[in-house]
Design a protein around this nucleic acid. Sequence first.
RNA 1: CGGAAUGUAGCUCAGCCUGGUAGAGCACUACGUUCGGGACGUAGAGGCCAUGGGUUCAAAUCCCGUCAUUCCGACCA
Length: 570
Amino acid sequence: MRVSRLISKKHKEKPAEAQLISHIYLLRGGYMRPVANGIYSLLLPAVRVQTKIENIIREEMNKIDGQEVKMPVVMPRELWDESGRWDSVGSELLRFKDRTQHDMLLGMTHEEAVTALARTEVTSYKDYPFMLYQIQTKFRDEARSRGGLIRVREFTMKDAYSFHTSWADLDNYYEKCAAAYHTIFRRCGVPEVVSIQSDSGMMGGKVAHEYQLLTDAGEDRVVVCDACHTYANSEVATCQFKAEPEEMKPLEEVETPNAKTIADLEKFLNMPATKMAKTVFYTSEKGETFAVVVRGDIEVNELKLQKIVRCLFNFATDEEVLKAGAVPGFANVIGVKCRVFVDASVANGYNLICGSNKEGWHLKNFNIARDIPHATVVDIATVKDGDICPKCGAKLRISRGIEVGNIFKLGTKYTESMHMTYTDEKGQEQTPIMACYGIGVGRLLGSVIEARHDDYGPIWPLSIAPWQIQLNAMGMANPQIKEVAERLYADLETAGFEVLYDDRGLSAGVQFADADLMGIPLRFIVAPRALEKGMIEYKVRGTDENGLISIDEVLPFAQKWIDEEMKKYR
RNA sequence: CGGAAUGUAGCUCAGCCUGGUAGAGCACUACGUUCGGGACGUAGAGGCCAUGGGUUCAAAUCCCGUCAUUCCGACCA
C-alpha cells in the first residue's frame, strides 16, 4: 500500500474527546472516526488489524471443532419471547418496529438465534457435541459508552455456543475452549490476559469466567493474588477473615453521643473498624425491609446480596428502619422484626462493637454465635486491597481490567425454555446443555494498544500489525533514492510481504511520526548515506534493534526476521 | 438515569467576564526554498460561532429551553 493513496489522516494533537491511550492513537493514527456515541467507522489500517485478529480467532475455534455460521443482526421479538429475554433485558436491548409494526430487535448476543437454529438442525445424540460460532456485529444500547473501542454500542464479536449431552462432556469442552482462548490472546500479542472467576449476570448459568487484561485503563475491578495467581472479579471475589479467638465477654452498654458512623466510633472509642459490626438496612422492590451485618471496615457487595435475596433493593429509609424495630445510626439486629443476613466477617469476629437500638449508645462484646444464634451467615463482603487470599493466605491486590472475553456454562436455560431436544441412545427425548464463549474483537484491538504502545503510537505485534513492513525513503527528490525505494517496494510486494510504502516524499520527521502511529514492526529506510555503500537501514518498532543490510539481502532478511518474530505468536 | 463541565474552520484552541464587521496554530490548495524525528516564506480556500427562543439599536458574547460531547456515579456478558 502506498501512503499517498491511503485514506487515513493522521493528527498531531490529542482529540478533545479521547482519554484512553488506545482511543487517542486510534483517532490520531487515522484508524477510525466517530459516527455517533459509541459507534465508529473503521478505516483500512484498523480493518486490517481486525481482520487478522478475526482470522486468529477463526483458526483456534476451528481447531476445537467449531463450525462457523452467520446469524442475523435483526431478529423478531418472538425469538426473544421464547427465552423470556424480550422482557427481562432492559433498555440495553435496542427494540424497534418494522413497517408492519412488528416488534424487532438488534442482536446483542445470540443464544436464542443459535438455539433456534440448532434445534431444527440437530435431533440425534449422534450429532453431539458440537459448537457453532460466528464473528458478527452486535448492538448494545449502552447507557454510557466510552474509551473508544473499549466500550462501544456497536461492535464486532466472536460468539460461540457449544451443546452437550452431559455435564462431564461440557466441562471437558469448556476446558478446551479456555485453553483455546489463552492461545488466541497469546497469538494476538497479549499473553498476559488472565482468566478470572466472574458473575454470570443476565446470561444465567452457574460457572463463568472472564478474560481480563489487567491495566489501569480498564473499568472492571479485579481481585488479584500475586502469590498463587488467583484472580476474581470483585463482583464475586471472596477473602478469608481471620480473628484470634477470644473469650466471649458479656454484652455491655457504652455511651457514644453523636457517634453515628463507623469513623465516628473509631475516633470516639479508639478502636479499629475491624472490631465493629455495621448494620445496613435495605428495602426490596417488593417492599420488604431486611438487615445485613458486616464488619465495620467492609463494604456490602450488593451484587452478592442480590443473588442471595433474589431481588433488587435500595437503602431503607429511616422510617423503614424504625418500622423494622431499629434506631438509625445506632442500629442493631438483636430483636429486629425483619430478615437478617450476617456476613462471615462478623460471624468470625469476637466481642465486637455494635449498635444498641438506643439513641446515643452502642454495645460492647457483641458475639453473633451467642447473641443471634439463628442468624443466616452469608458472604456479602466486598474484597479490598490487602485482604487475605482465600486460597493461600497471601495479601490480595485490587487491579483494574478490561474484559476482552468471557465464557459461561449456561446449562439448560435456553435449551429448556426454547424446547430444544434430542433423542438419546434409548430413544428417549433429552434436553441438551449449553455453554457460550465470547470475545470482543474491537475491544481486543483497543486492549492490545493499551498493552503495547510507547509515546509515539501503538507497537503492533507482528501477528496482527496492519502491515508487516514499513518502507520509508529519505529524499525522494533524489532520483536514485526514488528508484531504489520503488524497486524495493515492488520486490517486497511481489515476494508476498505486506508493505506500507511512504512514497509522499515528505520530510523525515513527518514520515517517522506517521510511521510510529501505524506501529508496523519492521521498518526499512532508503537514505543517501547508506545507499552510497549499497545498503539500506532497518529498524524494529519499539526496540533499539537497527542496522544496515545490503540491498540484495533485503528480501531474505525480511523473510528471516518475520519468520523468527512470528514464532512468538504461534 | 442523577451530578459536573464543554460545544467557535477538518483538528487543537483563543475571543465571551466588560455586547459593536470572526481569530491563531495544525491540516488543505498553488508557487518557491528546504529535506534523518512533526521545516520555512508568499498567496489562497475554509465558519448560520451546536440548536430554538428571548433581551437589545446591535448577540459568538447576556438570559431560558433543547440537543450533543466528555468526566464522575447508577446501570451493564
